[in-house]
Structures are given as structure tokens and as C-alpha cells.
């Protein structure tokens, strides 16, 4: 029995990381109807930037985040303003092709500068520390921190969207960009802010990912799939939905992995297919 409880707990905690991967994807799609195929590669890029900051500046991983996140925010803004804004149109194919191209560029730049070796961000033993919560049951400190971060960021985003002037502008632009412009909103700037936030979150997610596991330049597309699955399982309704989607995906993978160590990812895919079949709008779709 404990081994299943343990699996669920581990799944929930890893789901927090998946949610961190997924939030920006959901945000960019929600505001701009833009599907960022390079999202997973940007996670890996942030892992590498985190690694360079940790090794180059000799910082602890959490201190490194304070460097990586601002870099990620700026990259997101520049990417949107400089490239992606020019691809936004009624035809979603243009942004798909361009972000697919960006994905390939990131992978190849990383291969060129870092070779295909797998790397890891070391965190002075944090990755192996755990807290006992019951007999035969312990949770890793790092997964707990990741999950808590995911919950805080979800609450933060929900607050930003629901209760601030800039959040109102995001929603208004998403509803009707033409009418938003008549209110004085510079859509190009609003879109760039949205992408800055989306990629800024990846600054956190990328460093966590590098601390949790090894990574290599071509790992991005697999992470993109997890992010997609979390968004779709959760439904496009709210950031809490995306968090729930990540958690459900994490649980499915953890349970699958307990049945057979090779089945973790497969179990995630199966659950995703089941959601598509029986709840195609996800568990928390937009209500209006």
C-alpha cells in the first residue's frame, strides 16, 4: 500500500515541475493563440544558462536563479518583439514554423557549444536530501521546493491576471486586440510582456530541471510534450488547471513507473490519450 501512496506523492511533486514547464505555453497560447514549439528547448537552454552561472560564477543553484530569471525575462521580451510578433496572424502555421525553426536553432547552438554530453546542475547534496513523513515514507526536499514554487507561481499568475491592470490588459488583448488598441494598449508590447513572463518562468523551471536530473541539448522536444500534455489535461481555463494537469500527468507517470520501470512515460501518454477521448476540453476548461 505505501508504495502506491509513495508513487502518488512523488507524482504530485514532479507534477509541479511539469506545471512550471506548461504555464508559459498555456499563457502564450491563451493570449496570442501562439503555439511555441520551442518551449521545451527553451527549458533546456535555461538549464544550460543555469549551469554556466553555477559553474562560472560559483553560485548556488537558487542564487543562480536570480541571474537566470532576468536573462529569461529579457530573452522572452526580445524574442516576441523581435521575431514572434511578426508571425502573429490569422494563420497559425506561420508561428508554428518559426518556433519550430527556433527549436532547431537552439538545439544546434547548444550542441555546438556544449557537445551532446549530458550535464547536471549540482546543488551541494540537496538533490538527495529527504524528509521522512511517515514510516517507510519520505519526500525529497528538492521536489517539495519545486512543488511549492509551482503553487506560488500559479497563485501569482492567477492574481496577476485576475486583479492587476496589466492582467486586465492581457485578457482584453486576448479577447479583441483591435478594441484593445482603441483603449491605448500597444499590442506588440503586451505580447512581449506575456512572452517575457512565459520564458521567465522557464528560468526557474530550467534550473530546477537541471538540479533534478541530467540534461542534454536535444532533450527539449520531450519536455515540450510533457508541457503540452499538462496544458491539455488541465484544460485551458486557468493556471490552476494547468497545475492540476501537471500533477495528474506526474501521478500517471509515477504509478506507471511503479508497475514497470519502463512504463512511466508511457502511462503518462496513455492517460493523455484517455483525456483526449473522454474529456477533450480537459478537466478545467474555461467556463465562459
Amino acid at each position: 500500500m505505501t508504495i502506491w501512496i509513495d508513487a502518488i506523492i512523488q507524482g504530485v511533486l514532479v507534477g509541479g515541475l511539469y506545471a512550471l514547464f506548461a504555464m508559459g505555453l498555456s499563457l502564450m497560447f491563451g493570449i496570442m493563440r501562439l503555439v511555441n514549439v520551442a518551449h521545451g528547448d527553451l527549458v533546456i537552454l535555461m538549464s544550460f544558462i543555469g549551469l554556466m552561472v553555477v559553474e562560472g560564477l560559483g553560485l548556488q543553484p537558487f542564487a543562480a536563479m536570480a541571474v537566470v530569471v532576468p536573462i529569461a525575462l529579457c530573452m522572452g521580451y526580445a524574442l516576441q518583439r523581435g521575431v514572434l510578433n511578426h508571425t502573429i496572424s490569422k494563420d497559425p502555421l506561420r508561428s508554428l514554423i518559426v518556433t519550430f525553426g527556433i527549436s532547431i536553432v537552439i538545439q544546434n547552438l547548444l550542441l555546438a557549444f556544449h557537445s551532446a554530453d549530458t550535464r547536471a546542475i549540482h546543488s551541494a547534496g540537496l538533490e538527495s536530501q529527504s524528509l521522512p513523513i511517515a514510516e517507510n515514507l519520505a519526500v525529497g526536499v528538492l521536489p517539495v521546493i519545486m512543488f511549492a514554487t509551482a503553487v506560488m507561481l500559479t497563485a501569482g499568475l492567477q492574481w496577476l491576471f485576475g486583479s492587476t491592470r496589466i492582467g486586465r490588459a492581457f485578457r482584453a488583448t486576448s479577447d479583441d486586440d483591435g478594441a484593445a488598441a482603441l483603449m491605448g494598449i500597444n499590442n506588440a508590447h503586451i505580447y512581449a510582456l506575456a512572452t517575457a513572463i512565459a520564458i521567465g518562468i522557464l528560468g526557474v523551471a530550467g534550473v530546477f530541471h537541471g538540479m533534478r536530473t541530467t540534461f542534454a541539448p536535444t532533450d527539449g522536444p520531450a519536455l515540450l510534450i510533457y508541457a503540452f500534455q499538462a496544458v491539455i489535461i488541465g484544460g485551458m481555463g486557468s493556471f490552476w488547471g494547468t497545475l492540476a494537469g501537471g500533477v495528474l500527468l506526474g501521478i500517471a507517470q509515477a504509478i506507471g513507473a511503479r508497475i514497470d520501470p519502463g512504463w512511466g512515460v508511457l502511462a503518462g501518454h496513455l492517460m493523455f490519450v484517455a483525456v483526449l477521448l473522454f474529456k477533450p476540453n480537459g478537466f478545467f476548461p474555461k467556463t465562459r
Binding site: R165, R168, A169, R171, A172, S174, D175, D176, A179, A180, M183, R288
Partner: peptide, 12 residues
């Protein structure tokens, strides 16, 4: 704006 309340629309 459909996803904004009356007051939020006015605030825009």
C-alpha cells in the same frame, strides 16, 4: 471584452 466584467471593461 467578453472575459472582463462590466467594471473591468470600464477600467480598460
Amino acid at each position: 471584452f467578453p472575459s472582463l466584467s462590466v467594471e473591468e471593461n470600464l477600467c480598460m
